[in-house]
């Protein structure tokens, strides 16, 4: 997994609530057997019409918005557990998703792919949307070590992340490396476990 330490970037706003993973990557694009290439179908049905033409008023088709940070409405990533959603966002170039609330499975999938789901209060999210609306090239700085998100409008805002996941992101560690290293402890556990 790629490390994540610090990032300064402009951002792409999608002020829609309850964005589900079916929108992030529709099911018909889940047929691949590798992790690559999902970015081209990110938000496929919001970006393109049924004939494959760009839908101009969708933000990803608007050249003035770009960057490695996606700003989205409350409850981002609800629905299906498909990790392909995190792969698509990462493949497209996003390293940070800012929202006021994340669905659990998406959050876990993002973290397992070096993407930081950064949760802020609703009022901060509102300010961020306003800031981008005023100035599409507004820059946001995410400092994982200090756990802060900064911009001209919001100043320094701190965010939460549990210390284990923070360490994983800062060092590029996967859960699986750790789990494999404790296989003998897992075997010990199995000896005392009662099941039917």
């Amino acid at each position: 997994m790629d490390k994540f330490i610090r990032l300064k970037s402009t951002a792409v706003p999608i002020p829609v609530e309850d964005i589900d993973t079916d929108q992030i990557i529709p099911a018909r694009f889940l047929k691949a057997t590798t992790r690559d290439g999902f970015g081209s179908n990110l938000f496929r049905d919001w970006r393109f019409d049924n004939n494959g033409n760009s839908i101009h008023d969708f933000v990803l088709n608007n050249n003035i918005y770009k960057g490695q940070i996606l700003i989205a409405g409350r409850n981002f990533g609800c629905g299906s557990s498909r990790e392909h959603a995190a792969w698509a966002l990462g493949d497209y170039g996003f390293r940070v998703i800012i929202s006021s609330f994340f669905a659990d499975i998406f959050k876990s999938n993002a973290l397992n792919n070096g993407i930081l789901p950064l949760q802020v209060e609703d009022k901060i999210l509102h300010l961020i949307f306003k800031e981008i609306e005023k100035n599409a090239s507004a820059e946001f700085e995410v400092d994982l070590e200090r756990q802060t998100l900064s911009s001209e409008e919001i100043g320094d805002v701190s965010f939460e992340i549990d210390s284990y996941k923070k360490k994983c992101l800062l060092n590029g560690y996967d859960d699986i490396d750790f789990l494999i290293s404790i296989r003998s402890e897992i075997e010990e556990f199995e000896k005392i476990q009662e099941t039917y």
């Binding site: 859960d175 789990l179 404790i182 296989r183 897992i186």
Partner: peptide
């Protein structure tokens, strides 16, 4: 509960997951 593919790999490899208790 449902999990992502990275976690599918973790379970296949170790029969375990690292989780925050809900």
């Amino acid at each position: 509960f449902g999990i992502g593919t990275s976690q599918v790999e973790q379970v296949l490899s170790t029969q375990c997951l690292i989780l925050q208790k809900p």
